[in-house]
Amino acid sequence: MIALANVNPGDLFRVWRRNYDVYIRLWRTEMVAPLFEPIFTVMGFGWGVGSLVAGNVMGVPYLTFVGAGLLAFTALLRALFECTYGSYFRMVYQSTFDAVLCTPVEVESLALGEIAWGASKALLDGIFVLGVLSLFGAVLSPLGILIPFILSIAALWVAALSIIVTARIRDINYFNFYLAFVFSYLWISGAYFPLDKMPQLVQVLAWLVPVTAAVDISRGLMIGHFSWRTVFELLYLIVAFVLTAELALRSLRRRLVS
């Protein structure tokens, strides 16, 4: 049986809405604090590293080049943290999931609701960082406005992957392995420097993980570049999300319903 077919859209929304309500209530810590860092990162890269990089990288100004990577990673990491530590806290320490599952809401709707919420936070962060990058003049095309929405598809994938990890670990410290993997991957995803400078094997590995596609699409849209390659990358993100989500839903059922 397909777990995704067991999702009730109304219930999914209700789970999402609970997290949204709490987010609005705690807006100072939830919204303001985490956006502090990207502003400084953009300043650092723009004025600091940017001044050291002579000329353009792959034909675009360095801040535009690296801005796409920063934007992608800020958004995706937000989804990751939400669906690892955030979901784990709700599941284990607050027993929120247990309370939800005593109502008509089924575990599949709960899981996808959490994933959707993680992606929603990524979308909000994406919009904010895009705004900061525009202020610095790094966004060269109006197509840039699409980036947060494209990134939220990649964020859905990251959120689903994170739920799989969350559903399988028994000790919160195991997130360290997952985070080590993700942060290492940051350096080969093409976020900070062009991928074609890497050895062939690393390039293949990099393209297997959908984050690289997300970074590539974002970079293209920053300069107004949209092609068949963008469409294929987008499809790759969608397929990766659907397969990962299916696994995530199954994992959470195994964890919570026995």
């Binding site: 609970r18 309500d21 709490v22 209530r25 705690l26 607050q94 027993s95 929120t96 247990d98 309370a99 005593c102």
Partner: peptide, 10 residues
């Protein structure tokens, strides 16, 4: 249920 699982965020 046996253990209280009220939502501490609300």
């Amino acid at each position: 249920p046996q253990d209280n699982n009220l939502d501490p965020d609300l």
